[in-house]
Amino acid sequence: MLAVVDEQMNEKKEWEPKVLAFCCNWCSYAGADAAGLERRQTPPTIRVIRVMCSGRIDPAFVLMGFLEGADAVLITGCHIGDCHYVDANYKTRNRFEFLKEFVDELGLEPERLRLEWISASEGAIFADMVKEVTENVKKVGPSPFRKSWKK
């Protein structure tokens, strides 16, 4: 019986990446919703965190995501000029420049971090992006910050 329990609990599953996505309330979260309404297939790898604005995404949140073991982090928001809070996504874009350099210097693959502007009607783009990121991350393998890597 113990062997059966062990077998049930330790299924040898293929590794699936975990993709953390920050979506802004007004555009990209609605975009993700649209992808669902349009019945587009999205890989189940994505974990969405809704924030009011992409300008709320502190680079520290993204880095924490990586340290917690995310294989990729997506930052999404309204298109430049469409921000609900006038100019906040300019700040996002600026911070992303820093994050990109930081992640590259630290030694994580650039594929693991992505910034994308997605409007409420762009469900197709959202679905495609998740697919693409998942494929790319599968190629580069699990994040070196995965829990198993710890002491």
């Binding site: 680079p59 880095l63 340290l67 917690e68 820093f98 994050l99 930081f102």
Partner: peptide, 13 residues
């Protein structure tokens, strides 16, 4: 218990 602490990561950034 992160491999690099948030303190160092944020300071570097």
């Amino acid at each position: 218990d992160y491999v690099i602490s948030m303190y160092n990561v944020i300071r570097l950034l």
